[in-house]
């Protein structure tokens, strides 16, 4: 098994830093010639498709132990970005505190890809299907720029333009404890529409996290919509219309119109923007309709 010299010259050098500082140092040294890699599932498909060139250097973040794992920390669930999607899918902590994220992860690729792919990779991809769920969960992202930690919400990350080299070091989901004296009930919904039932690229992805009183009055609500190459955004107009109200037919019609107006999908030859807008709006109002106590039994 002699090494092919030509292949050796074409192949990226793979570096396995032991610390966050070392990884950032490498990236600063080599700039655009170096790419951070986590599970590398997206990179490999991009190289195969020719949409990205193989870089000169790969910085493998799998060698930094502190970037993996799921733990409860200061009122939040802290997820290391190198945690695989499979580990997120099977996490008891996430099932208890963020079932919306578990549902989102279940809908990303297939089991074997999830064994390699990481939550951090999906977040940094920006249009990954975990991102709408993290926006709806009001998740915070922790980054390191080589000298200090930076914090921003998942919502800010999705809408920001990313320029300074930095490394995602933690994804934090706030833990909201149930108030035993309150009659409110939490609910969530995650819907992904693609061209196949399972293991499908998304055309439209919608994530909702909310809280409602016994009579259906919405006391908390966060809605995010993305899918395909559309950067996920919060549907703030629909949220404003629905907060404090019981989602009846007229209210949901207004929410439908608000999503139609605010959601601006990127199109491709497979689905028009109008189709995607209507799909997103339908998914949002159907989810809210079905969680309302007066409508749940009507299917």
């Amino acid at each position: 098994m002699a090494l092919n010299q030509e292949e050796l010259l074409r192949s990226p050098a793979v570096w396995q830093p032991r610390s966050i500082e070392e990884a950032i140092g490498m990236k600063e040294e080599w700039g655009s010639a170096a790419v951070y890699t986590a599970g590398s599932t997206l990179l490999r498909t991009q190289w195969e498709a020719g949409t990205a060139a193989m870089p000169r250097h790969l910085i493998d973040l799998g060698s930094i132990a502190s970037l993996s794992g799921i733990r409860e920390e200061e009122g939040a669930i802290a997820i290391g970005p190198m945690t695989t999607l499979t580990d997120c899918r099977s996490s008891g902590l996430l099932a208890e505190h963020a079932p919306l994220l578990v549902d989102a992860v279940r809908n990303i690729a297939g089991w074997s890809v999830r064994n390699l792919a990481t939550l951090g990779g999906n977040v940094v991809y920006r249009v990954g299907d975990a991102v709408p769920a993290l926006i709806a969960l009001n998740a915070k992202l922790e980054w390191h720029d080589g000298s200090r930690l930076l914090f921003e919400s998942a919502e800010e990350w999705a809408s920001s333009s990313y320029a300074v080299p930095r490394l995602l070091t933690s994804i934090r989901i706030p833990c909201e404890e149930d108030d035993p004296t309150s009659n409110t009930k939490r609910f969530f919904a995650f819907h992904k529409v693609g061209r196949r039932e399972a293991f499908t690229p998304s055309l439209v992805t919608v994530a909702i996290q909310g809280e409602a009183e016994e009579d259906g009055t919405l006391t908390k609500l966060r809605i995010a919509a993305g899918g395909g190459q559309t950067t996920p955004v919060r549907m703030t107009r629909a949220e404003e219309l629905l907060l404090g109200a019981k989602p009846d037919g007229a209210g949901l019609q207004q929410a439908f119109e608000a999503v139609l107006e605010q959601y601006e999908p990127r199109t491709d030859p497979f689905a028009t923007d109008l189709y995607r807008k209507r799909t997103a709006a339908n998914l949002v109002v159907a989810a809210l309709w079905s969680q309302s106590p007066s409508n749940a039994s009507k299917g």
Binding site: V14, Q16, S40, T41, R44, T45, W111, S112, N115, L116
Partner: peptide
């Protein structure tokens, strides 16, 4: 598909260093 430490992975997506 192959098993790596008992878990199924797509060998077309997995690199030698992994």
């Amino acid at each position: 598909m192959v098993l790596v430490d008992g878990k199924p992975v797509n060998s077309c997506l997995t690199m030698a260093y992994q």
